[in-house]
Amino acid sequence: MLDTHPMQDHDQPLQLPPQGRQTWLVTGASAGIGLAVCQILHAAGHDVTGFGRRQAQDLPAGFPDIAYHTVDLATSQGCDLLAARAPHRLDRALLNAGLGYYRPLCRETPQAISDVLAVNLLAPMMAAHGLFGALLAGQGVLGLVGSTAYRGAAGMPVYAASKAGLDGFGRSLRSEWQGRVDVRVIHPGPTATGMAMRAGLTSPLALRMMLPVDAVAAGVIAAMQGQGRLRQRISFGAILRHKITGRAA
């Protein structure tokens, strides 16, 4: 359930989608959902460029053999660097880096609030801006990773705000870019990555109710393929449906 290396338990090799080899950009590639996405994409033969905050020497053991760049997306320099290091033509850009804390506003600090809003909301806006040309060239898909908390969550108000901002931004941008770049917002439910524990969630029941990271990563990839709606939620139901029908949420 808590396996963070999804490739180890896939017994059959993943097949290339009918579209063939794709060029992907993934932020938050160094851990959690983003790492699992990169592992699956790399094993399927896609060309992936990953971005994460940590240095390359600190990447986990199972990190796939893909291009990796260190950027701090809480800073404007980091956002500029992302645009500069991105491929010039992209089929898929998945803006997935994010962080958050399970705590009420009275236990927040101004620095943490600014960082969560910067990484989860401002950085994806900056990245979308910087990647427009590459996505246009590839007639690509821009995926914004939100969270089911986007409708509001009493336990994590700042995180919920950042993800709602991403959802609202994506909704309007999808309309602006229609016919040029396909914009989607993907909202995973609680997932068993290190994030929840780092975020301060310790209840064993809550941790057991979490979605397995490899299934969420597969759901995210599926949500980036084919004709897609604006919003895609990744929940137990959606994962089950995907397993049965092969279609995204």
């Binding site: 506003l105 809003l117 909301l121 806006m125 986007y150 409708r151 509001g152 969550a153 009493a154 994590m156 108000p157 700042v158 919920a160 705000a161 950042s162 993800k163 709602a164 901002g165 991403l166 959802d167 609202g168 931004f169 994506g170 909704r171 309007s172 941008l173 309309s175 602006e176």
Partner: peptide, 23 residues
């Protein structure tokens, strides 16, 4: 939604969710 003011729309949606969360 507010095409032509996507950043504005995002920021305002963030406030709605923030208020809902705090309520």
């Amino acid at each position: 939604g507010y095409p032509g003011a996507s950043v504005y729309a995002g920021g305002k949606d963030a406030l709605v969710a923030f208020a809902r969360s705090l309520r």
